[in-house]
Simulated scan of single mutants.
Amino acid sequence: MKIDTIINQPVIETERFDLRPLRKSDKGLVEHYSSDERVARMTTSIPHPLPPGMAEAFVTRAMSEDRDEDTWAMDGTKDGGPELMGVISLKKMDRNQTEVGYWVAPIFWNTGLASLAVQALVEANPLDNATMFASVFQDNPASARVLTHCGFEYLGDAESFSVARDTTVPTWTYSRKL
């Protein structure tokens, strides 16, 4: 695995794809995929329907030098795939910890993409964290399997509000010491 830094966020290279910082040209695919109700319903923050300008605001925030979350595109161009197949992020927390978040476009579900992206991010540990956390909705066991496959351990049950569902949803919380 090779890591190169662009601006103040690294590019993380894997054999199949690269995790690279978002760029303005990603807006269209971010909008296309995140407007899919199946994607939005598995996140806490993506509304459905997706309001105009939301994808552009997301990309702009991700590109900001003073952001509190580093976001990478899962870019498959090195293997003949599209520039954006999903996104993965690390939200900064206190005590040298981060929270991992990710979504994958439905066309790439069940291909191992999420597991490879999470594993690459864990191995690179670009923010030199002591611990990474992640939460998934309990009705999304595929995402829970991604986390356990990547060495995350179950911590407990909780709940989070889902904007797309307009309700609080039970979650499973996981952590990984690095």
Score class of each variant (00 low, 15 high):
1 M>G: 15
1 M>F: 14
3 I>L: 14
4 D>L: 09
7 I>L: 07
7 I>G: 01
9 Q>I: 11
11 V>P: 01
12 I>C: 06
13 E>T: 11
17 F>V: 04
18 D>N: 15
18 D>G: 08
20 R>F: 01
20 R>L: 02
22 L>D: 00
24 K>F: 12
26 D>Q: 05
27 K>R: 12
28 G>Q: 14
30 V>G: 01
31 E>R: 11
34 S>R: 11
37 E>R: 15
37 E>I: 15
38 R>S: 15
41 R>G: 09
45 S>P: 00
45 S>W: 04
46 I>Y: 09
48 H>Q: 11
52 P>T: 10
52 P>I: 06
53 G>S: 05
54 M>G: 04
55 A>R: 05
58 F>Y: 10
59 V>Q: 02
62 A>S: 14
64 S>T: 02
64 S>N: 08
65 E>H: 01
68 D>S: 09
68 D>H: 04
70 D>Y: 04
70 D>F: 05
70 D>K: 00
70 D>V: 05
72 W>G: 01
73 A>I: 03
74 M>P: 02
74 M>K: 01
76 G>S: 08
77 T>S: 14
78 K>R: 12
79 D>S: 14
79 D>P: 00
79 D>I: 00
81 G>S: 13
81 G>N: 11
83 E>C: 07
83 E>Q: 08
86 G>F: 03
89 S>Y: 01
91 K>H: 05
91 K>Q: 10
95 R>E: 15
96 N>Q: 05
99 E>A: 08
100 V>T: 12
102 Y>A: 09
104 V>N: 09
104 V>A: 11
108 F>R: 10
109 W>H: 15
109 W>M: 13
109 W>P: 05
112 G>W: 09
112 G>H: 12
115 S>G: 15
116 L>W: 03
118 V>H: 06
118 V>I: 13
119 Q>G: 12
119 Q>H: 14
119 Q>Y: 09
122 V>Q: 10
123 E>K: 00
127 L>M: 10
127 L>W: 01
129 N>W: 00
130 A>G: 07
132 M>S: 08
136 V>K: 06
137 F>N: 01
137 F>P: 02
142 A>N: 11
143 S>P: 07
144 A>T: 12
147 L>E: 06
150 C>R: 03
150 C>P: 08
151 G>T: 05
151 G>M: 05
153 E>N: 09
155 L>V: 12
155 L>S: 07
157 D>E: 11
160 S>W: 07
160 S>A: 15
161 F>T: 07
162 S>I: 07
162 S>W: 02
165 R>I: 04
170 P>D: 12
172 W>H: 07
173 T>H: 08
174 Y>A: 03
178 L>C: 04
